[in-house]
Amino acid sequence: MKFLSPEYISMAAGFLVILIGIWGILANKNLIRMIIGFSLFDTGIHIVMVAISYLKDRTAPIIDETINTQEIAKQITDPVPQALVLTAIVIGLGVTALMLVYAMKLHKEKKSLDITKFNDLKW
C-alpha cells in the first residue's frame, strides 16, 4: 500500500490544512479570522514541504557518531527543503504580525473589523 507511509499521510494532511486555510480566508468576513486562515495556509505549506524532504528509514541531517561518515548520503533525509521551511516560518511570523497591525489600524479608523464595511474603493 503506497499511501500508507508517513510522507503520504502528512502530505495529505498538509494539503487539507491548505484547503481549510483557503476556506477560512474566503468564508469569513472578520479580518482577524481571515488572518487565522492565512496562518493555517502557511502551516499547511510547511507540512507539505517537510513531507517532501522525508525519506524512509533515514535520520535527521545532523552528523554524529551514529552515522557512518563514508555513506552519509544513504543515511540522511533531504536538508534543502528543511532549510527553506526554517526561513519560511520566520518570515511567516513577520508577515502575520504585519497583517495584524494593519487590521488594528483599520479598526482604529473604521471601528469595525467587517470587510464588507470597508467600501472606500468600491465602485
Binding site: 510547511h46 517537510v50 528543511q82 521551511v85 526554517l86 516560518i89 511567516g92 511570523l93
Partner: peptide
Amino acid sequence: ILYLVLAAPDVAMTEAAIG
C-alpha cells in the same frame, strides 16, 4: 511534533518557538 516524526528537528524547534 509531526516534523519531529518526519526527521526534521530544526524545523520542529522553529515551529514550536515561533508558530
